[in-house]
Design a protein around this nucleic acid. Structure first.
Lengths: 348, 348
DNA sequence: TTGTACGCGTTATCAG
DNA sequence: CTGATAACGCGTACAA
């Protein structure tokens, strides 16, 4: 039987530093925490010793006594779709200002892995958790929220959990921006394409927004949707567009629930010989890097991810301060990014 | 002066569980670690008590004594460019099999932030560090490697550090695949576009590969390059392509050092009215999701990121076992993904 | 200003 | 199998 690879060689500790500097452990501790109550001379000696030894405080031990880690765990539901990048950026920046670091984790779209990662975070005693994205982590999030301050963001349908803050883009507003833009260009036959999580199509906020906004614009008669029962991706968008464009009276514009879906629509238009935007206008949602590629140049909705991230950080920081305050439910204002895939309706 | 928000309410501990189950702390510890030396009855009692209390072992305390955290830190140099996703996936999967979790961090392209994140990881006493990507973290990586097992991957130029393993794609092979493919299609005037890190153009492995492979193919006379002094992105590719295609005798094919660069080239071709692939063939490198978009359909090199990730994990696991073993320098075999942006040379 | 002693939650050791 | 007891590295009253 071999020994299970013994402990790693321990680095220098407060004790070693204290010895080398010829002082007590307490003093080292005081210096490391920037206490004002220590003489210049001693301070310098300690710092010198620490540097020479390559001393680095042990966050584990510190947290064990302080009860805080100044670290929050962020679970990113689907790393592959880079819509979260802006959000994570705003989040990290704002957390920085609170002296907190974000550690990211990728559940690989597997609920079990997600579970394990959250468990790991909780065992590490993170001060808070953020769940960034939709589907696979909801149940997990529910459990985590009972143990630690938790914020949910970019969930595709509203979720109300006690003591859990939510931050989302205002889907209603986003879709309204798109539809008004298309209307102003003279479009009337505007179709909507999306997928859905867990077959709960009725909870899809963007779809709901499309329906209500079309009505508001007096276009109830023109409503046409193609909603898949799996999450929207390029293939789903492609198939949906082929169906819609194959109809007797095809739409002049198609609104997609995500940039990825819109790309599928563009591909379908290509294959069917429909010119964009002369014959067909297409819009996306998310303003991912994909949409800004010149070769694509997609008109889309920018959810203002950075701002969302900041809000998430603020919610979390607030809840860490007072865990039992009433829940917040924030909605962030999106904006429209007009690029090259939308134009005047045909025959106008 | 307000108190600095007291410690979080401590959860249940071994002690509470022991009391509730009417046993000693030691027994609880044994049960939690799945010792075989404990009776069914006792085990069940303990587990029941733990469940009822919502007990969760404190990884901090555990690591404090064990000296291991079973956690490695992964610094991702540029989160926005999703080429790393496949690699991270392979990495996490393989680490899983070693009972180790990957925690990700985003330095936001800021060396200082990177420094802070690494410091945080080291204070958390991660068992190892992975640096995934190029530029901004090199100096930081060097420092980390003196403290903890470290693996570098996807650095654009070779780096030799004592005790640091490296995993990279075989750039020479990748470029060779591309050039052979283009040659077979009858191309001879094949140009190369890339950027560079830190103005060290001479260390660019892909550029070097292009030069040597062109020579090998007997095309030394046709060598044409456009190398920017900033990292390659869409704009850089766009500008380079405009220059190349504006020449008296323009190339019939352009090879880019990344998918993003290739997209810029495609945009330039569009603007100049050059049809792809009839008038111009274009290739990328990375096989990011960008290239697989139907609307783009870019011929590119797949670096086999998942395999790279696995190798990284193996290197790291190995070095954690024996920190002083000789350094490994792994090269992963890439493959060519032929899509729609390459075709026969004009006039053929 | 500096030193001492104790606790944080675990694991490991060793004698019952 | 069980139950004390000693680390692990650090913060912090309390005492000197």
């Amino acid at each position: 039987m071999e020994k299970k690879t013994g402990k790693r060689a321990k680095g220098p500790t407060v004790r070693s530093v204290a010895e080398r500097a010829g002082v007590s452990k307490s003093l080292v501790s005081l210096v490391m925490n920037g206490s004002k109550q220590v003489s210049e001379k001693r301070r310098d000696e300690v710092l010198k010793a620490a540097r020479e030894l390559g001393y680095r405080p042990n966050a584990l031990a510190r947290s064990l006594v302080s009860g805080r880690t100044n670290t929050v765990g962020v679970v990113i539901s689907n790393v592959a779709n880079p819509w979260w990048v802006a959000l994570e950026r705003g989040l990290s920046e704002e957390l920085d200002r609170h002296g907190v670091r974000a550690l990211l984790a990728d559940p690989r779209m597997d609920p079990e892995v997600a579970d394990g990662l959250v468990e790991a975070f909780l065992e590490l005693r993170v001060d808070g958790m953020v769940f960034l994205g939709t589907q696979p982590v909801e149940e997990v999030a529910r459990n985590a929220s009972r143990v630690v301050p938790t914020v949910l963001t970019s969930f595709s349908r509203p979720i109300e959990l006690p003591n859990v803050d939510c931050v989302n883009v205002d889907d209603e507003k986003g879709i309204a921006l798109v539809l008004e833009h298309l209307c102003a260009l003279g479009h009337r036959r505007i179709a909507y394409v999306d997928g859905s999580d867990r077959l709960v199509t009725s909870d899809n906020a963007r779809l709901a927004a499309y329906l209500s906004q079309m009505e508001r614009l007096g276009l109830s008669a023109e409503i046409r949707t193609d909603i898949s029962d799996v999450p929207l991706n390029e293939d789903v968008g492609y198939d949906a567009a082929r169906r819609l464009l194959g109809a007797e009276v095809p739409p002049t514009a198609i609104v997609a629930g995500s940039d990825l879906g819109a790309l599928g629509i563009l591909a379908a238009a290509d294959d069917l010989g429909a010119r964009v935007p002369q014959d067909l206008s297409v819009t996306g949602f998310d303003n991912t890097r994909l949409s800004s590629i010149r070769h694509v140049s997609l008109t889309t909705v920018d959810p203002n991810g950075r701002e969302m991230g900041r809000l998430v950080a603020q919610c979390l920081a607030g809840r860490i301060e007072s865990p039992d305050r009433p829940r917040r439910d924030e909605l962030v204002e999106p904006s429209l990014v007009v690029r090259a895939t939308t134009g005047p309706a045909p025959g106008r």
